[in-house]
Design a protein around this nucleic acid. Structure first.
Length: 110
DNA sequence: CAGGTGACCCATG
DNA sequence: ACATGGGCCACCT
């Protein structure tokens, strides 16, 4: 299942599994899926997520907890607004308590 | 066909 | 602690 067409869906499935009020990173998804392509392809897949509904892309941030992809949303503030709507605090385009609300797909203890 | 780009990450100076 | 460079690979021009 190394079809690129499939890995897009795989990323979508993982992103859909992100619990509300939690966030994850591109690298974590790449690691969970075993994508040697690295985290970059995960971000690339997210870029195509506009075609798929129910993709909480706002719950996916980089390893720094920074909203790197906020510019790709309908509005730059949309991503932060969605995060705050779920109880996630964002300050200066960075998620507060990032380690606390971080959700690792490979370590589902919740 | 070749070069450039990218919602990233890691190692090194 | 900050700055820089390299690596990774799919997609676009």
């Amino acid at each position: 299942m190394q079809n690129r067409d499939n890995y897009f869906d795989l990323v979508y499935q993982v992103v859909k599994l992100i619990p509300k009020g939690r966030v994850t990173s591109y690298g974590a998804i790449a690691n969970y899926l075993g994508l040697k392509s690295g985290a970059r392809m995960v971000g690339y897949a997210m870029n195509a997520s506009h075609s798929q509904p129910d993709i909480p892309a706002h719950r996916v941030v980089n390893r720094n907890g920074v909203l790197t992809g906020k510019h790709h949303f309908p509005h730059p503030e949309f991503m932060q607004q969605q995060l705050e709507s779920e109880g996630i605090k964002v300050r200066n385009d960075k998620i507060l308590e990032f380690e606390k609300i971080f959700w690792d797909p490979n370590n589902l203890e919740i």
